[in-house]
């Protein structure tokens, strides 16, 4: 994992105090986002938090109202083209030209980005299981998503930006995408990945910026944000369990009869399971907390 303290290296994306309003609506309200070279950076927030608006400002598609936005040290609004030469972007809602074939769309987009290796395109088409000879109008949302992902991954650039990339993909294809992101990390490319699913960010990212209502509420290395590492547990036992709340690293304990719900830091898992086992476990569910739960518990407000 890259060292967060390595601030001497210039940030690839440097956004500070960014604001943007659309009429009466405030989309961004002093947002900060810093992405350093080599990071796989998760950009996490509920729907409507301002993720897409931020990405569009970073791409120079929208003009900011105030604040700082620099990409590769340049202003994206006036230097869009030279910045775009060094990045690849996949929007959240992929729409393509209905009369083109999938393969034609991939070729067009990669050519606009300066061209891609044919063998690499074929390899990605195979990995993502896409038939490039079908007209785009016959594609599902997932297949359109694949076209944009292939066209983005086929070119070799320093920065990749993905907006909700696995939204339309089935789990198998989402896994293929994660493998590709890991390969980018090995090649020391920088990735900014927006998502509203914590598990998605947790699976591939090393850094995360969490935003809500157009404002950054937390940012840092994923390993430092301990509460993101917690597991939600539901344990059903035959006998009563000793009070789990006494164990350091166990939070939010709720009891209903012989069913206990709690969230547990990795360090406390062993102790929790030992006590539960002593009370004869009948059923055990465990999952990472959802973004919604996280907002409710740690940021003390409903995300909606």
């Amino acid at each position: 994992m890259k060292d967060q303290g390595d601030l001497s290296a210039a940030a690839i994306i440097d956004v500070r105090g960014l604001t943007k309003t659309f009429g009466d609506t405030t989309a961004l309200n002093g947002l900060d986002l810093t992405v350093h070279p080599g990071q796989i950076h998760g950009f996490l927030g509920p729907n409507g938090a301002g993720k897409t608006t931020t990405l569009r400002v970073v791409l120079g598609l929208l003009a900011k109202d105030s604040g700082v936005a620099h990409v590769f040290g340049a202003d994206p609004w006036s230097q869009a083209v030279s910045i775009h030469r060094r990045l690849s972007y996949v929007p959240g809602e992929v729409s393509l030209w209905p009369t083109l074939r999938g393969g034609e769309s991939i070729d067009y987009l990669t050519r606009l980005r300066g061209g891609a290796d044919r063998a690499r395109i074929s390899q990605l088409q195979e990995l993502f299981d896409l038939n490039p000879r079908v007209k785009v109008s016959a594609y599902s949302k997932g297949n359109r998503q694949k076209v944009a992902l292939i066209a983005a991954l086929a070119v070799d650039v320093p920065l990749y930006i993905f907006d909700e990339p696995t939204d339309g993909l089935d789990p198998l294809m989402a896994e293929v995408f994660r493998e590709e992101v890991k390969a980018l990390r090995e090649r020391e490319r920088t990735v900014l990945l927006s998502s509203h699913v914590l598990a998605e960010v947790d699976a591939v990212c090393d850094h995360v910026t969490i935003i809500r209502d157009g404002r950054t509420i937390e940012t840092g290395a994923l390993s430092d944000l301990r509460h993101l590492q917690r597991q939600s547990l539901v344990i059903e036992t035959r006998d009563a369990v000793d009070d789990l709340g006494q164990i350091p690293g166990v939070h939010d304990v709720e009891r209903h009869d012989r069913i206990v719900r709690c969230t547990v830091e990795p360090s406390a898992l062993h102790d929790v399971l030992r006590r539960a086992a002593a009370a004869h476990v009948l059923n055990l569910e465990t999952r990472p907390p959802s973004l919604e739960e996280m907002f409710l518990r740690y940021y003390d407000r409903d995300p909606s």
Binding site: R56, L61, S82, L112
Partner: peptide, 13 residues
């Protein structure tokens, strides 16, 4: 539709 966004994120004016 968002097609312009896709094209304009590449190196064209």
């Amino acid at each position: 539709s968002g097609r312009a966004e896709l094209e304009l994120s590449t190196a064209i004016t």
